[in-house]
């Protein structure tokens, strides 16, 4: 019994890491630009399909192809930004949220249909030689691909944190998040920072998508699911604290698994939404959210 519970928790945490990674991407974009990109899940889906194609057509290992997938997503991100989002950078915060949501919903439809045409409605996955192998530790099974997913998520998070803490550009991003006018007065090109943040968010969606593909599967309709999870986790963890966001993801994953185990699989989705409501009611700045000035 203990083993089954622990096993369940382990799988939940590994799923949660992917929620966390996806949410860090959406939170990065939202925190800096105040763009609520509801097509984030579709970008994640494209990351999955990019990895799928590289595996299927060129036989490149899904983990080795990550840099290519990131590159692919950066290109998509750049096109979307220059074509659509750049028009909204001068709006007020409220207008930005409303307009980017509208644009985002439009994008979800377009991207879904592109995916349907290119890859059909079937679930796609990759079967590597190590796909079914696991590490056994104290009677708990750790599937290799999911462990790798957790590790890569952590590496991304750590790299992002270091980038934001140590580099001048990273500090410029943090400064812009806090006060774009003051940032622009010290000589930071706020528009460039916005684009950079958007691209980082897109790249993170790509990595998350690749990891979703190897651990689970992708289909043209998964976007909304991942956007919702990302939003829940972002609210759960609080905007402006990526470590908190990531931990929020792991909490959600673990809770969902526990719900499926102890209550019923039918309720696992409900738990996330209940979480969401409770946090909004009792701690609107998020579990680990920065206090308002």
């Amino acid at each position: 019994m203990i083993e089954a519970i622990t096993q369940n928790l382990v799988i939940g945490i590994m799923l949660g890491a992917l929620y966390g990674l996806a949410a860090v991407g959406i939170a990065m974009v939202f925190g800096v630009t105040k763009f609520l990109n509801v097509a984030h899940g579709e970008l994640l889906m494209f990351g999955g399909y990019s990895t799928f194609w590289l595996f299927k057509l060129l036989n490149i290992d899904p983990f080795l192809s990550l840099p290519l997938t990131i590159l692919f997503l950066l290109v998509i991100g750049l096109v979307l930004y220059k074509l659509l989002f750049v028009r909204m950078v001068k709006m007020t915060e409220e207008q930005k949220i409303k307009n980017t949501m509208l644009v985002g919903f439009g994008l979800t439809l377009i991207l879904q249909n592109i995916a349907l045409n290119l890859w059909t409605a079937n679930d796609r996955g990759v079967t590597t030689s190590y796909a079914t192998e696991s590490l056994m530790l104290l009677g708990i099974r750790f599937p290799y691909v999911r462990v790798a997913g957790l590790v890569i998520s952590l590496v991304c998070l750590f790299a992002l944190q270091q980038f934001l803490r140590k580099t001048y550009i990273g500090k410029a991003i943090r400064a812009t998040t806090e006060d774009w006018e003051a940032a622009s007065l010290v000589g930071i090109d706020v528009q460039k920072v916005y684009m950079l943040a958007f691209l980082i968010g897109t790249a993170l969606a790509g990595v998350a998508g690749a990891l979703v593909l190897v651990s689970y599967s992708v289909s043209p309709s998964i976007g909304l699911h991942w956007t919702l999870k990302s939003l829940i986790v972002m609210v759960l963890g609080g905007v402006g604290n990526f470590m908190g966001t990531f931990v929020g993801g792991i909490l959600l994953g673990a809770t969902e698994s526990a719900t499926a185990f102890f209550i019923s699989g039918n309720y696992r989705e409900v738990v996330g939404l209940i979480f969401f409501l409770l946090i909004l009611i009792f701690k609107p700045q998020g579990l680990f959210g920065a206090k308002e000035r």
Binding site: E181, V186, G187, V190
Partner: peptide
């Protein structure tokens, strides 16, 4: 963002420091 390169620097109203960053980081920026 180019104005400061000409040698004009402004202290915005109310200070508006980057509250979540250290004093050192604020100065660096």
């Amino acid at each position: 963002h180019k104005i400061v390169e000409f040698g004009i620097s402004q202290v915005p109203e109310g200070g508006r420091v980057f509250a979540g960053m250290t004093v050192f980081e604020n100065l660096e920026l």
